[in-house]
Design a protein around this nucleic acid. Structure first.
Lengths: 341, 341
DNA sequence: GTGAAAGCGCTAACAA
DNA sequence: TTGTTAGCGCTTTCAC
């Protein structure tokens, strides 16, 4: 049992089964057009030798890899702290697995990693890429497009002026925000504040737009830019309360931010929802249901988004030259009513 | 700009630069032993053509992939909910990146995925594997060893009887637990309960052992098996309080569990640490520092563990046949004193 | 239905 | 120092 006991090759299997390499190859790849007795013999030889095809050799000729890269342009800490990515990945993973594709996760922390990721993608390790969490001035999408790898984006890319040829999947961020704010307004709240996400991401910008559409007049004191994290939202909430002590509602750009806001409101002695009503965005169960009080929020089906992204990409890879289904898929959101508003 | 504009090959670069393929290959791989003017000419040709080496072809001959698989045998939801993995991955990622290796993350949710992962590993996509979170009866390690891929395990594998040839990195779980319980005992606490992790994982079993070593006599009413999650710990804490209303301290097997315990204690009106002192394990900052009161806990350097795992694996891959450094690396823990005990 | 043979794009002896 | 050549292990025409 030497360490260097190199794996058996097609050749070895062929020899053992007493057939040609071509026949073994056929059997291994489904076995169409090979007569039953031979199939059986080859199968046994494969079994006995513990043969596993060498993917490098296969890819070299087929130019397929049956692997898809998922590129997340956020530091690990954030990726893992935010259940959003977990759900998205779950959806992707399920869809890819169902189609016998391997998921390869590439995390890029900072610009230094960009070149490395671009090289990896261009190096032909994967058939396509699913790319997330882009910021407005991010050079990554350019690099990726340059790598010539079919790509589907998660979230509407900021630089997509309709001119570029991009495929993306997104939630109806603007519509969801409108619903949230309308609910608060319908509750009779008049000083509705908004804690935004990082505005260089379209999801945050779109939610702000939705908020503004319903608010009509825009009181700048009621809007604070934040970063989708609980800590950032705490700071934002404090600032809002200082600026505008009589505010009676808060629409937070995501659930994590809402939970931060809740903490500050409690600390400052405001009752939720009596004094201040709060609405979040995402409906991340562990956050929304566990928070005190449970969070009223805008639900987006995150897992489904992941699944759709994967599906779109796989379809694109299939129909080779066929219709390049371009553009965006926008999924609806729904309001989930709990105790906070 | 056709979709099928296949990437340029070495051949093309060679032709353009007016040299042989071998020379281009040398330049692309560092350029040793090629005279400056030629290097320059080749570089330019590479640039102009946008040449990127085909990794499949390269791997086919070198048998190297410069990629390492990280296999996590937990469902996505848990992997992403527990910052433990994030930190570990961060350490791994840094180390691999520093050595120009790509990290490929494989998540296995349930037995169905095992075969797929084994196939991937055996298929020669990666040079080695880093494997985590194994359970006692897990068939995965067997499959992986069968795949013949050099592997380093995260955490002491349960089936390592010293007979198997395994390399692993672990924290001193037993020693850390002892320290925790000794602290509580030193505080004059006499009824010290323990909320364990899933006992089919060695980390949980080792912490229980440490607890028992210090406790001496073992009151079974004071120990409840749980699962490393806040929810599980809440149930466990309730049971402990019901069984043993006069308990005055709790050692939780990790910080997440400690946070669940704290919640129940508050709900039941016990003051921490006055009535019940609490100690956790891990020292996950977001959990330990944010909890109320801040958590006294056993710190393990999780990121460092990841880094060491990667380093061990890379070294093993380097010194080809050399000394097969076998066995475990056990990292020390330190007690971090905050308010909960 | 099966086999022979020609590469896929690259590296690594070995010659020159 | 540079080029020539022989594969790496597999798929895929193309004959048989």
């Amino acid at each position: 049992m030497t360490e260097t006991a190199s794996r058996p090759t097609l050749e070895a299997v062929a020899a053992r089964a007493g057939v040609s390499r071509a026949t073994v190859s056929r059997v291994v790849n489904g076995g169409d057009g090979v007569r039953e007795p031979l199939v059986e013999r080859v199968r046994r030889a494969v079994e006995e030798l513990g043969y596993v095809p060498n993917q490098a050799a296969r890819s070299l000729v087929t130019k397929r890899h049956d692997a898809i890269a998922v590129v997340i342009a956020e530091p690990e800490t954030r990726v893992f702290a935010d259940p959003f990515f977990a759900l998205q990945l779950r959806g992707i993973s399920k869809e890819l697995t169902a189609h016998d594709n391997q998921l390869v996760l590439l995390l890029t922390e900072g610009r230094d990693d960009h070149a490395r990721v671009a090289r990896y993608l261009a190096g032909g390790h994967v058939d396509g890429a699913l790319v997330f969490s882009l910021h407005l001035d991010d050079p990554l999408p350019g690099l990726i497009q340059g790598a010539g790898v079919p790509t589907v984006f998660g979230g509407r890319p900021g630089w997509s002026d309709g001119t570029r040829d991009v495929v993306y999947v997104d939630s109806d961020n603007r519509g969801g925000a409108r619903e949230a704010v309308r609910l608060l307004a319908g509750l009779g709240r008049t000083r509705i504040a908004h804690i935004t996400g990082p505005l260089d991401q379209t999801s945050a910008a779109d939610r702000l737009d939705g908020y503004r559409e319903v608010m009509g007049v825009d009181d700048p004191r009621l809007v604070v830019e934040s970063d989708f994290t609980p800590g950032g939202a705490e700071r934002a909430m404090r600032e809002l309360l200082d600026r505008c002590p009589d505010l009676d509602a808060v629409f937070a750009a995501n659930d994590l931010a809402a939970s931060g806001a809740l903490r500050v409101l409690r600390e400052r002695g405001r009752r939720v929802p009596e004094d201040v009503a709060v609405v979040g965005f995402d409906d991340l169960l562990p956050v929304a249901e566990q928070s005190d009080p449970p969070l009223t929020t805008v639900r987006q089906d995150i897992e489904e988004m992941g699944r759709i992204m994967a599906r779109l990409l796989l379809r694109r890879l299939d129909r080779r030259v066929a219709e390049e289904a371009t553009g965006g898929v926008v999924l609806p959101t729904t309001l989930v009513r709990r105790a906070s508003a």
